[in-house]
Design a protein around this nucleic acid. Sequence first.
DNA 1: AACGGTTGCAACCGCGGAATA
DNA 2: CTATTCCGCGGTTGCAACCGT
Length: 223
Amino acid sequence: MARTRCYDKKSGLKKGTWTLEEDKKLAAYVTKYGCWNWRQLPKFAGLSRCGKSCRLRWLNYLQPNIKRGNYTREEDQIIMKLHAEIENKWSAIAIHLPGRSDNEIKNHWHTSLKKRSTHELTCNGKKREANNVNKKSDEDQNISPNESYIEVSSCVTTDQNMENIMDAECEINQEELFEESIGNFWTEPFLIDSFISTTSNSEFCVPLEVEYGLFVSPFSPIM
DNA sequence: AACGGTTGCAACCGCGGAATA
DNA sequence: CTATTCCGCGGTTGCAACCGT
């Protein structure tokens, strides 16, 4: 599944699959002190990793509100709809799917949704062609080509309710989303709780600014 | 059972933009 | 204004698991 472990002699930094030990260290450190500086963080957290790698690992895997497992039909529909609108803006799409990282969404798109989308486009094309025959009558009834298209594209949205759900989803106030995720962050019992309990604070080196609260990340529990 | 091809996903890489000196 | 540093994003890669023959 994951890459085999390797070591970059040039930089002296480790690459490849993260071990449970590394996960524990990173999760415990970020939870306690926040991500005040990704580049410096691994040094203080006692990790032989580059900052980018730590950031990625945290965002895609260790973050407490991260949702794992199968995508729901709603999630698939949201992704496909947003991708049709804004294309490969994965981070923007991820905003509409709390708990899913941009990387995860991107992977999901490339592995399954892309094929489905292509298939459905083909399917729509055929339907649209067929519908062109009836276009004239639509115009007579003051129905725009778009409306007509939406109507026949049942292949994409077989359930009108789903469309409504998605539209509502898109209108969710971003502040609410943020508050919700922060709320979950602090209140839900997470895997990392056990990490923290098993990782003593004394294992970390902490910059004075962080230690004494001179610098506080907005994501830090110190807040 | 063995093999080769395909799939799913974690992780890396390079680039661009924002922030800072 | 320029140079440098850092972060975030999107594309790509590599590998284990799965599947079909």
